[in-house]
Computed example of a mutant assay.
Amino acid sequence: MKRLLLILILTFSFQSLSEADDISDFQIEGMSIGDSLLDFYAEKKIRNLEKINYPNSDKFYGIWIYSSSDKYDTYGFTLKKNDNKFKIYQLKGSLDMNFNKCMDLKKGIQNKIKKILTNSTEDSYRSNYQNNLGKSYSEVTDLIVENGSIRIWCENFDKNFEQSKNWIESLNVDASSEEYLNWIDNEAYK
């Protein structure tokens, strides 16, 4: 029953927007691309979080914040190095759940977002983590708009593969700015 209520809350949380085609119009828990993270968390808390760095560029870094919210278990943010305003370039909500429940919920969320982002282009695919995690895979849908994209995906980890056997399957909703996406594609891992 609690999960059903959660599914309804997540589904209806995307209804607060009318039609929109700008990535900054999309919200996760009231947070949008371009907002200052300081509007939601204290600077001391942000600065004390462990930074996630990328192998070939330090222009951006990621952080995770564990949540007491009923909607998501964790929130992820990508911020620009040396930005004292902590502008959000990428944000993500993640909710732990088994893969089959996730797939049921993913479809509903995807349809709601498509109604909001009326000029989005959809790309759905299966990611196998470049075969680095046994038979693990994610079912991914990208909704691409003019200045960014929204990704919704469910993770299914191979419990027989040593590296991923203890990982937790989850539903993920991610909004990314075009600047962040260009950086991740052309600098972060090159």
Rank of each mutant, 00 (worst) to 15 (best):
M1R: 08
K2F: 04
L6M: 05
I7A: 07
L8D: 12
F12V: 03
S13Y: 10
S16V: 00
S18G: 12
A20I: 11
A20S: 13
D21P: 03
S24I: 06
D25H: 10
D25W: 05
F26L: 14
F26S: 02
Q27K: 15
Q27L: 14
I28T: 03
I28M: 08
G30K: 11
G30S: 10
M31K: 15
S32W: 01
D39T: 07
E43C: 04
K45I: 12
R47P: 00
R47L: 15
L49Q: 13
K51C: 00
N53W: 04
Y54W: 13
S57K: 04
S57Q: 06
D58W: 05
D58S: 12
W64I: 04
I65K: 13
S68G: 09
D70F: 14
K71S: 04
K71L: 05
Y72C: 01
D73A: 06
D73R: 10
Y75S: 02
T78K: 08
L79Q: 07
K80E: 13
N82V: 02
D83P: 04
N84D: 13
K87D: 03
K87P: 00
K87Y: 06
I88K: 07
I88Y: 08
K92C: 04
S94W: 07
L95R: 07
D96T: 02
M97F: 03
N98D: 15
N100V: 05
C102Q: 08
D104Q: 10
K107Y: 12
I109E: 02
Q110N: 12
K112N: 15
I113K: 03
L117M: 15
T118P: 01
T121Q: 12
E122M: 00
S124I: 01
S124C: 07
Y125P: 03
Y125A: 06
Y125S: 11
R126P: 00
N128G: 08
N132G: 01
N132P: 02
N132V: 06
K135V: 01
S136W: 09
S136M: 13
Y137Q: 08
E139Q: 14
V140P: 02
V140N: 12
T141V: 15
D142Y: 08
D142F: 06
L143P: 01
I144T: 15
S149H: 06
I150G: 02
I150K: 04
I150M: 14
W153K: 01
C154Y: 04
E155D: 15
N156S: 15
N156I: 10
K159V: 03
K159G: 05
N160Q: 13
S164R: 11
N172I: 05
A175G: 06
L181Y: 04
N182C: 03
E187C: 11
Y189L: 11
Y189I: 07
